[in-house]
């Protein structure tokens, strides 16, 4: 392996496993420039670790704890407030939905709302069932009306029908 291939291993020395370390140490034994690079890298790494050992300290740990606990308590209260607001909204929503259903179902169930439907059904049923009778009745009615009209034609003008006579005839035909 050439020197540039060992550069990454030198930088990642702490992360190498035993075999990789052995291979690198073997190379360092025979390469002065890599050995110098390894040593300077190790010194920089040690310095960084030394700095890492200096922990940034909180200015006031007690205040931090108090602030965190305050936020937790306030957070819990806010959650409760949110819950109560949500419940209130849910109540209103449920009330609105119930009013909606009562209104529409009420209309559907009202007696006057049902009547036209029943009548329509009866009429449609009678039309379907009494089709022949209906045609017969219609034919009779037409011939009766025609007869009435003929009987009410004026004596002088054949195109003119006596209206009073016709009304009377039609009224009689409806009665019977």
């Amino acid at each position: 392996m050439r020197c540039e291939n060992f550069e990454k291993q030198i930088v990642l020395w702490p992360e190498l496993n035993a075999d990789e370390r052995g291979e690198l140490e073997k190379h360092l034994g025979s390469c002065a420039s890599c050995k110098t690079y390894f040593e300077s890298t190790a010194l920089t790494r040690d310095k960084i670790h030394e700095v890492g050992g200096i922990k940034p300290m909180l200015a006031d740990p007690n205040r931090m704890t108090t602030d965190i606990m305050k936020r937790i308590v306030t957070g819990n209260k806010q959650i409760l407030v949110i819950h109560s607001q949500t419940l209130q909204l849910a109540r209103y929503a449920l009330a609105a939905v119930s009013v909606f259903f009562v209104f529409f179902l009420g209309i559907e169930l009202l007696p006057f709302a049902e009547q036209p439907q029943e009548q329509t059904q009866v009429v449609s049923r009678s039309i379907v069932l009494d089709k022949g009778k209906f045609k017969e009745a219609l034919r009779k009615s037409r011939s009766s009306n025609l007869r009435s009209m003929k009987e009410c034609v004026g004596p002088f003008n054949l195109n003119k029908v006596d209206e009073a006579c016709l009304r009377e005839k039609l009224a009689w035909s409806k009665v019977f």
Binding site: K55, P56, M57, L58, P61, M64, T65, I68, M69
Partner: peptide
């Protein structure tokens, strides 16, 4: 728990 870990968290 906060007292135990807040220094680490802050760091």
């Amino acid at each position: 728990l906060v007292e135990m870990h807040q220094a680490l968290a802050y760091a």
